[in-house]
Simulated scan of single mutants.
Amino acid sequence: MLLRRGRLTDRERERLASRREAREDELYAPPLPDGADRWSTWGEGDLGPEPRPEWLVVADGAVDSRLGVVKTGKEADVHLVERWIPAEDGASVAASCLLAEKIYRSNEHRNFHRDAAYVDGRRTRESRMDRAVANRTRFGLKIIADQWAVAEFAALGALWAAGAPVPYPVQRVGTELLLEFIGDADGSAAPRLAALRPDPDELADLWGQLCAALQIVARAGYTHGDLSPWNVLVHEGRLVLIDLPQIVDLTANPRGDEYLTRDVRNVATWFAARGLPDGERRTEELLTTLRYEARLV
């Protein structure tokens, strides 16, 4: 067995301190109410922007219950979580909200297609970490997972504050994101745009919503990076953009305009196939508008 010599790095000290705190929390925490999986993690990690939505449960004494899997993927799994406050009688719920818990798989991020192109413009403050990312070492893959989570949470916060139709980012702890659940109160997730067969009026309305949403994103300096009808939800007629870990900084990434063009054409093709008239003209007009909003021209 090899013994490590020398001083601990700041990262190692933080990791040890976090483990000690976790053990102490487990030792002194009161028993969980029936049906709860853990005490609420509110207050840990990064928190979403203010003002916070009224529906969000932030009280001390709240608990989290995992209700099931929303979806699984190569890079992350999404679970449905209920955050709730037990009533004083111990047998009912005083308040609750539904959240989407997105957990990145750090050891499987090598499956993130063309991730090297997406992380252009994303750099750490340490050359050792940058080398690990470039060489895709095990440590580098862990850093990439952290970068995806950090990038998505930060982008969601900025876009939500700017008025874009995205889920409210509740908090980030490591590679776990807690986000606003887009769906019904019974836990049914909103359908993806790809699954819809809208009539002409609904189609035109959704196109208008998409154009407005992408203008807000471009004005903030971004494009989605992997936009398609599969990562756009529609809940009660409202369009919502999701899955933004690969969000592209249009200024920092040298291929920014390429990703912007691809994003627009991916969704415009779906709208044209559903019968939206003048598809090519609308696509070019939208691209021109987005480049102007992003100050690329």
Score class of each variant (00 low, 15 high):
251 T>W: 09
251 T>D: 14
251 T>I: 10
252 A>M: 13
252 A>N: 14
252 A>E: 15
252 A>Q: 15
252 A>L: 15
252 A>V: 10
253 N>P: 07
253 N>I: 00
254 P>K: 02
254 P>C: 01
254 P>Q: 11
255 R>W: 10
256 G>A: 09
256 G>H: 02
256 G>S: 09
257 D>T: 12
257 D>Y: 00
257 D>I: 09
258 E>T: 14
259 Y>R: 01
260 L>P: 01
260 L>S: 02
260 L>R: 01
261 T>V: 10
261 T>N: 05
261 T>Q: 03
261 T>D: 12
263 D>E: 07
263 D>S: 05
263 D>F: 04
263 D>W: 07
263 D>Q: 12
265 R>F: 00
266 N>I: 06
266 N>W: 07
267 V>E: 02
267 V>T: 11
267 V>D: 02
267 V>N: 02
267 V>C: 09
268 A>G: 06
268 A>R: 03
268 A>V: 12
268 A>D: 04
269 T>D: 06
269 T>Y: 08
269 T>R: 14
269 T>I: 08
270 W>E: 05
270 W>K: 08
270 W>R: 06
271 F>H: 03
272 A>R: 13
272 A>K: 13
273 A>K: 15
274 R>V: 10
274 R>C: 13
274 R>Q: 15
274 R>G: 08
275 G>I: 10
277 P>H: 03
277 P>K: 01
277 P>E: 10
277 P>C: 09
279 G>Q: 11
279 G>M: 13
279 G>D: 11
279 G>V: 09
280 E>Q: 10
280 E>F: 05
280 E>V: 13
281 R>Y: 09
281 R>E: 15
282 R>G: 09
282 R>L: 15
282 R>Y: 07
282 R>C: 07
283 T>M: 11
284 E>P: 04
285 E>V: 02
285 E>N: 10
285 E>Y: 09
286 L>C: 05
286 L>G: 02
286 L>P: 08
286 L>N: 01
287 L>T: 06
287 L>G: 07
287 L>I: 06
288 T>L: 12
289 T>F: 05
289 T>H: 14
289 T>C: 12
289 T>S: 14
290 L>I: 08
290 L>V: 05
290 L>G: 03
292 Y>D: 14
292 Y>M: 14
293 E>R: 07
293 E>I: 01
293 E>K: 02
294 A>S: 06
294 A>G: 04
294 A>L: 02
295 R>N: 10
295 R>L: 13
296 L>D: 07
296 L>Y: 01
